[in-house]
């Protein structure tokens, strides 16, 4: 070897030894998790801050709703309690609608830029040539983003659940918990739906490689998926049926359902046990006569009591998890296609 280079190596040898990492105290992200946190921390902090604020606000308001409903049910409400309860029903619709939009928000603003941002700016290559594998990069990004998304949906969903409970028990007819803005925004379903939003966004970002188009395509895709989900949701409900017989099918004869239950379907009941739609004979000159001629003997009401809500949440969440895994297969394909 040339003496010149050997000397040069010796001269600066000790200084070149890798510096020992400083001791760390407490929890600190390391490796790929550190990179993902550092790169997306603004997004994650906004999510975290929004979640904390919204959750606290819902819980705070929920305390008053609980008290007001208790007062109304106790038969000794102040005028303020009545107003609080009335306002709470309309507020519940709005909060639920906002929370049901979370998957769209997360899909477009967290999922879509997750990889499209790096592919657009070239930093996907920067990370791709470090010693860690691309699979680890993709998996860590998805995992950390999923953690914050699930946390947001879970916490806000739980708070909304707390806010909604007395209102449902007081009068479920004003707080339909089978609709999108209530069912999709609480419980495990809210968590799985937000994860689907995230994964669809990430997948579209991997395929389209550019941020803005990815966000648009994500919103469109999620809109389509949401439409399909609207059609499928009630398939997971277990319903109770209550009927009247003996020719009692006048408007006043409708069977009572529990006040914490939601009426799902209303039909006429024939003597042979078959059902016919409530619009039967609606245009007939003599309605009751027409109905009697048709064999109608009473009402049949399908309803879902609030006690079935949990079961429906879990079965629906299980089915949605299946869909999530299917999307995950597409994500894996997209990552493989785009990143090598």
């Amino acid at each position: 070897m040339s003496a010149t280079t050997q000397e040069a190596r010796r001269g600066s040898g000790p200084a070149r030894a890798p510096r020992a990492a400083a001791p760390r105290r407490g929890f600190a992200p390391r490796g790929m998790v550190w990179l993902v946190w550092r790169q997306h921390r603004a997004t994650f902090l906004v999510m975290l801050g929004g979640t904390v604020l919204a959750t606290a606000a819902l819980l705070y308001k929920g305390v008053y709703v609980h008290e007001a409903v208790a007062a109304v049910d106790g038969g000794d409400p102040t005028p303020g309690d009545d107003a609080t309860v009335a306002d709470a029903y309309s507020a519940l619709q709005a909060y639920g609608a906002a929370l049901a939009g979370l998957p769209f928000l997360v899909g477009a603003f967290v999922g879509a830029p997750l990889f499209a941002g790096d592919l657009e700016s070239g930093t996907a290559k920067l990370v791709g040539v470090q010693s860690r594998s691309r699979t680890e990069w993709v998996a860590t990004k998805l995992a950390v983003a999923a953690l914050f998304s699930a946390l947001a949906a879970g916490a806000m969903g739980a708070a909304l659940h707390y806010y909604r409970a007395p209102l449902v028990e007081h009068d479920a007819s004003q707080a339909d918990f089978t609709l999108s803005n209530s069912f999709d925004s609480t419980g495990p379903v809210a968590v799985v739906l937000v994860l689907i939003g995230l994964l669809v966004g990430a997948t579209v970002g991997l395929l389209f490689r550019r941020m803005l188009p990815s966000m648009v395509v994500t919103l469109v895709s999620l809109y389509v998926l949401n439409f399909a989900w609207e059609l499928a949701r009630m398939a997971f409900a277990r319903l109770e049926t209550v009927t009247t017989g003996g020719g009692r099918f006048g408007d006043d004869d409708r069977p009572r359902i529990p006040r914490d239950a939601v009426e799902i379907d209303l039909s006429y009941l024939r003597s042979d046990g078959s059902l016919t739609g409530w619009s039967t004979c609606v245009n007939a000159e003599n309605g009751p006569a027409c109905l009697r001629e048709d064999g109608v003997v009473g009402w049949a009401v399908d309803y879902m009591p609030y006690s079935h809500f949990g079961a429906m949440q879990w079965t629906a969440a299980a089915a949605l998890t299946g869909a999530l895994l299917l999307i995950g297969v597409v994500t894996a394909y997209a990552a493989r296609r785009t990143l090598r």
Binding site: A15, R16, P18, A124, L126, R132
Partner: peptide
């Protein structure tokens, strides 16, 4: 390509976090 919102120190830390043989000095 570099992360434009990273500081230079962050950028070097990325190298350290992702490479076992990293030479910070």
């Amino acid at each position: 390509p570099l992360f434009t919102r990273f500081s230079v120190a962050d950028t070097l830390r990325m190298g350290r976090e992702l490479n076992p043989g990293w030479d910070q000095a």
